[in-house]
Design a protein around this nucleic acid. Structure first.
Length: 505
RNA sequence: GUCUUGUUAGCUCAGCUGGUAGAGCACGUCACUUUUAAUGAUGUGGCCGAUGGUUCGAAUCCAUCACAGGACACCA
């Protein structure tokens, strides 16, 4: 039984006593007429008054008790609502007879949610407070809160019981406020540019648009398996074929892969597609987007991230091959052929999966020697065609694509390219991916012939981009684990029953 | 998936090379009408993550498992 804890039993008893005395411990008769933040702002003038009070003003606030100091016939209570923390002064003689002694002192405690009416005053120590004239219990908390000073620090509790984390740690609430603002600003930015927000399927017959292993589910009525989407790309491009010229989608993707500080099985991205534009236009709009975010979030353009400082006014642009030598320190001659890369990797005591092609090996060199060194925002361009199966080839050099990835603080934040709209080329790219799949690359793209057919009707020249929202928020909030920017990060089940149920299914 | 560290009261943590479990907060009782993690006195609270093993004796040593953190691998 989950309520067999002694402290919980005590609190259940207190709730009962409150109820018996006519104080509903789960009342919804709320008369709050201001938030704590507003109260503190509106009454900031009280400190300048001679008597430090104004008994003519009256406010009703509500919130959760975070601290409680009973000092005989008077008490101080700190309550918190979403907007802030307020000190309440509760004196016996200002409340109905015996309420203070029999109800407040005995049955009200930290964690309870209360409503208090009264007038503003400033205490001897100079804190703007509220002098209580009425006191109502709104919600009795029967589980005790964590320790008042240290709070909860155990990450497992913080993630599994996020509500406790949010109650105890106001900076966590702030992080999620920022996250919400980022999503809403992103939406507004693209809407203002004339983009149309769309919703495409989460359940795909073919998991396409990225290199990743999908989750599988089953549709009973149709008797077929569906894949949770790994990316919305191929659907969004079908919409461009259909004649929408600028679309975006902000939503979840699902990838059946490992979990760590930068990976959660479900994560949020924005993907946007823009007809009659190229990846060069995307570089410009990306810079503009960051400027917009920083302005509206009031962030300094030199932003600390852990031990690093990222200068968001210093966008760089460098082709991938050039970055290998200039940033990665890889000799020019060790980047050009399969054999030279393999022997270079060998000289560094590194091994790769056998059978990799030139483009894949160049990607390996980049991941190994360049990526973590890209601190200020850097667009890496000219990706090899082998690792860009949905991107348009460069007209000058068909071995590379019109693509970039944006790296900040050593992490990939965005992936973008001029879209491949040649259906014959797209078909052959899929065929190459199919061969890779047959050769054991279980993350190679799936053939999507319906998508190729869509392209065959003609997709206007288009540029498209995906931005990882979670990682972006990590960057902007100086968080270093994706779990700290997800309200409910993926966790393994704790008790055996949950595991059993899953096995039975 | 691999390596590594952790899991002791509701929470934050002690508990050394094995000898029947400790503090602070919270909670109970008492005192206290301007405190700031209030204070003083006093008391309650534990299957020491789970299962096996070694031992006269295990929170402590060993093994396995579960969950978590970190690092690596794969990926965004």
């Amino acid at each position: 039984m989950i309520f067999d804890n002694k402290f919980i039993q005590q609190r259940i008893e207190k709730a009962k006593l409150l109820k018996e005395a006519g104080h509903n411990p789960y009342s919804n008769d709320c008369k709050r007429n201001t938030t704590i933040e507003k109260y503190l702002n509106v009454n900031s003038d009280i400190a300048d008054r001679e008597d430090k009070r104004d008994e003519k003003r009256h406010y009703t606030v509500a919130g959760r008790i975070k601290l409680l100091r009973v000092m005989g016939k008077a008490s101080f209570v700190k309550i918190e609502d979403e907007s802030g923390m307020l000190q309440i002064y509760v004196a016996r003689d200002n409340l109905p007879e015996d309420f203070y002694n029999d109800m407040f002192k005995k049955n009200i405690e930290v964690g309870d949610i209360i409503e208090v009416g009264g007038y503003p005053f400033v205490t001897g120590k100079g804190e703007l407070s509220l002098h209580a004239e009425s006191f109502t219990i709104l919600t009795k908390a029967i589980s005790p809160l964590p320790e008042k000073f240290h709070g909860v620090t155990d990450k497992e509790i913080r993630y599994r019981k996020r509500y406790l984390d949010l109650i105890m740690n106001s900076e966590v609430r702030k992080t999620f406020h920022t996250r919400s603002k980022v999503v809403s600003l992103t939406r507004r930015f693209f809407e203002d540019k004339g983009f149309l927000e769309v919703e495409t399927p989460m359940m795909h017959p073919i998991a396409g648009g990225a290199n990743a292993k999908p989750f599988v589910t089953h549709h009973n009525a149709l008797g077929i398996d569906r894949f949770l989407r790994i990316a919305p790309e191929l659907y969004l491009k079908r919409l461009i074929v259909g004649g929408f010229e600028a679309v975006f989608e902000i939503n979840r993707n699902f990838r059946n892969e490992g979990m760590d500080a930068t990976h959660n099985p479900e994560f949020t991205s924005i993907e946007f597609y823009w007809a009659y534009k190229t990846y060069k236009d995307l570089i410009e709009i990306t810079k503009e987007y960051f400027k917009y975010l920083f302005e509206h979030l009031n962030l300094p353009t030199r932003l600390p991230y852990g031990d690093l400082e990222v200068d968001f006014e210093n966008f760089q642009e460098i082709p991938l091959i050039e970055s290998l030598t200039k940033i990665g320190g890889v000799p020019v001659e060790s980047c050009k052929t399969i054999d030279s890369i393999l022997s270079y990797l060998k000289s560094k005591n590194m091994t790769v999966k056998p059978g990799m092609n030139l483009g894949q090996l160049q990607g390996e060199l980049f991941d190994e020697f360049v990526e973590e060194k890209l601190i200020d925002p850097t667009f890496i361009t000219e990706y090899p065609v082998e690792i860009s199966p949905l991107a348009r080839r460069s007209d000058e050099n068909p071995a590379i694509t019109e693509r970039f990835e944006l790296f900040i603080a050593g992490r990939e934040i965005a992936n973008a390219f001029s879209e491949l709209n040649d259906p014959i080329d797209q078909l052959s790219r899929f065929e190459v991916q199919m061969k890779a799949k047959d050769n054991g690359d279980d993350e190679a793209h799936e053939m999507d012939s319906d998508f190729v057919e869509a392209l065959s009707y003609g997709m206007a020249p288009t540029a498209g981009q995906g931005i990882g929202i979670d990682r972006l928020v990590m960057l902007l909030t100086n968080e270093h684990s994706i779990r700290d920017v997800l309200l409910f990060p993926a966790m393994k089940p704790i008790n055996n029953e949950e595991i059993k149920t899953q096995e039975e299914e």
